[in-house]
Design a protein around this nucleic acid. Structure first.
Length: 500
RNA sequence: GGUUUCAUGGCCGAGUGGCUAGGCAGAGCUCUGCAAAAGCUCGUACAGCGGUUCGAAUCCGCUUGAAACCUCCA
């Protein structure tokens, strides 16, 4: 079998994955800022890295997956007073800052559950690690790469760049940046434009504030990920993931801080997922074209023709390679919905099939083809998590499964081993690794099934006496409430719940 | 302005120096009381212009178009 290769953003090439500690993987992924509701764009990294997590586990690695929650609103805008995004919004909504944080954290967790994302091993919060962040800033100051101005602390990028490679991740050149960045509007305590805040002094109206050696304030944006990843994964770990838009400045700054504080490159493999676009444009707050996840599910957004279930979105995301942009459109989502239904139907059929052979000969060509399609699956995953190709092969196998059921292909035409490989492959790749899981009916399932069987029998009786008006009425009215009947070849009737 | 990336059939999207991606939509056929589902078959794409090559959509150059990052952003 092939080796796992990961496209490492820092070297701009695919590299064989070798963990620092054999058998173990430390992975850090930048999580959400819980000052608002997650939108479709946010879903991509969480789904992408969920599959990475799942696949690494499948390969037998013991994975420690850390995904943070940024609950300390902190950022600075050039030319303006530093402001606290979270406390600002909190005033608008008349909520305590932590109340707001809790609300959106809960909503986020709920969405992750809907997507069938496995929970991270550790989900640290920024506010829970203020001490670690302060300690790390102190260390950077001791080394002489940070300076304090009026209660704020800045990282000295120019000094850092003199001895280290600032731009190693993003490919940026410091000189270019110094020349090309925008005009300052008055404020600047920073020695250089490229310097970034490690700690910011809190203005009086700022609600979220903590005591520090430099007075009351709050941590800079980049420091939390460096401090928390080091605490739980060590000063160097295996994989750092996040969206492409975080590559600069966020990840570049993380690297610089961590290098000074811990003396080594913080992560060995950097993975960046590409953006979701809408009408060719990145979905983002600044463009005002976001669709929140609850809107996606409900369809309550002018850009949506209807709601799409979380699994449809997961499927939609995984049908594309994670490094490519993914263009949102209703047509594409509806295509994904149909595709998912077909794939899942085939999966359910496959799980119910049992192997039997009466000693008749195997169709060697077919048997070989099925084995090959299954055998390629790990190769695709190993090739930088090519979920799109995995999907394609599953789709190619679907007609075989359906034919096995429909009788176009007889079971004896494939060997028992091949059949078992087929069942195993679908369960493993579709369900365990891609994480596709259609919601099972709740506890009322038995009752619903009982009612449906009754209706199916009534329809059968009507058909037997050629009362098609009645049989069609039953079928059509069930369809209207979202239950599709299917007349099988053997005369039995099955049903499926239509996704909406 | 700087840095970088991308350009594939009606739509979404893989991939590769020469061999069918796949899905959705569409057409025909089979099955069926009808329908749905399912099965079979079909379109024959790779922005434009040059170049390298026996051969390029895949490599190089130019042109055009689009996007991302440089500022909070997944």
């Amino acid at each position: 079998m092939s080796e796992l290769k990961i496209y490492n953003s820092i070297h701009r090439q695919k590299e064989v994955f070798t963990p620092i500690t054999p058998g173990h993987v430390g992975m850090y992924v930048c999580g959400p800022t819980v000052s608002g509701e997650s939108h479709l764009g946010h879903a991509r990294p969480y789904i992408t890295f969920d599959v990475v997590n799942r696949y690494l586990r499948f390969l037998g690695y013991k994975v420690r997956y850390v995904r943070n929650i940024t609950d300390a609103g902190h950022f600075e805008e050039e030319g303006r007073e530093a402001e606290d995004k979270i406390s600002k919004k909190a005033i608008l909504e008349k909520l305590e800052p932590m109340e707001l944080v809790q609300k959106y954290t809960n909503l986020y967790h709920w969405a992750m559950l809907q997507f069938n994302n496995l929970e991270p091993s550790i989900e640290p919060t920024a506010t829970g690690h203020i001490i670690e962040q302060i300690e790390m800033i102190k260390k950077i100051m001791e080394k002489g790469y940070a300076y304090e101005v009026d209660g704020s602390v800045y990282f000295d990028v120019k000094k850092y760049a003199a001895s280290y490679d600032y731009g190693i991740l993003s490919g940026r050149v410091l000189e270019d940046m110094l020349e090309t960045t925008r005009e300052l509007e008055g404020q600047d305590e920073k020695r250089n434009k490229a310097d970034f805040a490690l700690w910011k002094k809190a203005p009086p109206e700022h609600i979220m504030r903590w005591p520090s050696p430099w007075g009351e304030g709050f941590p800079g944006w980049h420091i939390e990920c460096s401090a928390m990843s080091a605490k739980y994964l060590g000063s160097q770990f295996d994989i750092h993931g996040g969206g492409m838009d975080l590559q600069f400045p966020h990840h570049e700054c993380e690297i610089a801080q961590s290098e000074i504080a811990h003396g080594e490159l913080m992560a060995r493999y950097w993975m960046h997922n590409n953006m979701i676009t809408i009408n060719g444009r990145k979905m983002g707050k600044s463009y005002g074209n976001t669709i929140t996840l609850t809107e996606m599910f409900s369809g309550n957004n002018p850009q949506l023709e209807k709601g799409y279930s979380p699994m449809v979105i997961r499927f939609f995301v995984l049908q594309t390679h994670y490094r490519g942009t993914l263009d949102f459109s209703n047509e594409a989502l509806q295509a994904a919905e149909k595709g998912l239904q077909r794939l899942w139907a085939a999966y359910e059929v496959l799980q119910k099939l049992t192997y039997s052979s009466n000693g008749q000969p195997i169709n060697e060509e077919l048997d070989k083809q099925v084995r090959q399609l299954c055998a390629e699956l790990p190769d695709f995953m190993n090739d930088d998590f090519n979920t799109a190709k995995v999907m394609a092969n599953l789709f190619e196998l679907a007609p075989v499964i359906n034919s096995l059921k429909g009788g176009q292909i007889k079971m004896h035409e494939i060997s028992e081993d091949t059949f078992q490989l087929l069942q195993y492959s679908w369960k493993t790749y579709l369900v365990d690794i891609l994480g596709i899981q259609m919601e099972v009916l709740g506890t009322d399932e038995d009752k619903l099934d009982g009612v449906l069987q009754m209706l199916i029998n009534m329809r059968k009786e009507a058909k037997a006496r050629k009362d098609y008006a009645t049989s069609d009425k039953i079928r059509n009215e069930l369809l209207a409430v979202g239950i599709q009947l299917k007349d099988e070849k053997d005369g039995s009737v099955s049903y499926s719940i239509v996704q909406d």
